[in-house]
C-alpha cells in the first residue's frame, strides 16, 4: 500500500464523533477538562471515563498537546517510576544489576502516581507499587557500600555502560529501534546482532526459540564486553525476557535517553 494512502486514511479514520467530555454523564462532577486530564494522569479515572478520554485525545490535537505537556512536566519522575516497575518485574535476577543502576534513581515523590495509559502493559495500583518499591528502597539503603546512591540528579551514565564505547551502544539502540544491522564477525557486529535478537525476542513475546537465540548472542557479547555486560548472566530461557529488559535499560542509560 502506498504510504500516502495509508496516512490519509488513518488520519481520517482516527476520528470518532462524540459530544464534549464535560457533557457526558460519566464526567459528572468534573468542572473542567484540566481536572479530567489531571485525574487521568494520576490514574484516578474509571475505565469508562478512561475510554471516553482516550477517544477525545485521539480526536483533539489541542487536548493531546496539553496531555503530552502534562506528562512531560513529570517525565523524569515517570521514567524513574518505569525503571522501578521494570526492575520489579525482573525480580530477584535484577538485584545484581540494580547495584549498578540505582545511582540514577531517586525515591519517587509520594504524591506521584504514574499516568494511566490504556496501552500500558502493567498498572500496579499505588498501594501495590508502594509494596513493590519498599523492598527496593530497603535493599538500596542497606547497601552502605554504595556511595553514589543519592546522586540521582542529573542522570549519569552507569560506570558499567561507560566501560563500553558509546558508539556501540548507539549502534545497538539504532538496530533495536528498527535500523538495519551491520552484522560482521566483530564485537560491534555481534553486539548489533544481539540488538536484533532482542527486538525479535520482544516481537515474539519472548518465545522459546527467540529466547534461545537471544541468550546465545548475549553469551558472545559478554565475551566481547565482559565488564559492562557482566550483570547480565544468561540462564534459563524463561529469564530471557527480564534480561532483555535489563539490557535495553542499560542501553538507554548509556545513550542518555
Amino acid at each position: 500500500m502506498n504510504p500516502e494512502t495509508e496516512k490519509s486514511l488513518f488520519r481520517a479514520l482516527r476520528y470518532q464523533d462524540q459530544p464534549s467530555l464535560l457533557s457526558r454523564p460519566e464526567f459528572e462532577g468534573f468542572a473542567t477538562t484540566d481536572e479530567i486530564l489531571a485525574a487521568h494522569a494520576d490514574g484516578r479515572l474509571t475505565s469508562a471515563q478512561q475510554e471516553w478520554l482516550t477517544v477525545a485525545l485521539a480526536n483533539s490535537n489541542i487536548l493531546r498537546q496539553q496531555w503530552v505537556a502534562l506528562l512531560e512536566s513529570r517525565e523524569t519522575v515517570a521514567a524513574r517510576q518505569g525503571v522501578w516497575r521494570r526492575f520489579a518485574m525482573a525480580g530477584a535476577a535484577a538485584s545484581v544489576l540494580l547495584a549498578g543502576v540505582l545511582v540514577f534513581v531517586n525515591d519517587p515523590p509520594q504524591e506521584f502516581s504514574p499516568p494511566a495509559s490504556p496501552m500500558a502493559e502493567s498498572h500496579p495500583a499505588p498501594q501495590a507499587r508502594a509494596q513493590v518499591d519498599a523492598p527496593m528502597r530497603k535493599q538500596s539503603s542497606a547497601d552502605q557500600s554504595f556511595a553514589f546512591e543519592d546522586r540521582a540528579e542529573p542522570p549519569q551514565r552507569p560506570a558499567a555502560a561507560l566501560a563500553m564505547p558509546v558508539p556501540d551502544w548507539n549502534g545497538f539502540m539504532a538496530v533495536y529501534a528498527g535500523d538495519q544491522a551491520h552484522l560482521s564477525d566483530s564485537p560491534e557486529g555481534r553486539f548489533q546482532a544481539l540488538a536484533l535478537s532482542l527486538r525479535h525476542l520482544q516481537q515474539e513475546d519472548c518465545s522459546v526459540a527467540a529466547a534461545q537465540t537471544f541468550l546465545q548472542r548475549l553469551t558472545l557479547s559478554r565475551q566481547d564486553y565482559p565488564a559492562p555486560l557482566s550483570p547480565l548472566e544468561p540462564g534459563l530461557t524463561a529469564d530471557a525476557c527480564a534480561l532483555g529488559e535489563q539490557l535495553i535499560q542499560m542501553a538507554r542509560q548509556a545513550v542518555g535517553q
Binding site: 482516527r14 470518532q16 471516553w52 477517544v55 485525545l57 485521539a58 480526536n59 493531546r64 490504556p118 496501552m119
Partner: peptide, 12 residues
C-alpha cells in the same frame, strides 16, 4: 479508542 489514539500519535 486505544487504536485511534495510537493512530493520532503516529500518523498525525
Amino acid at each position: 479508542a486505544d487504536d485511534r489514539l495510537l493512530l493520532s500519535l503516529s500518523y498525525e
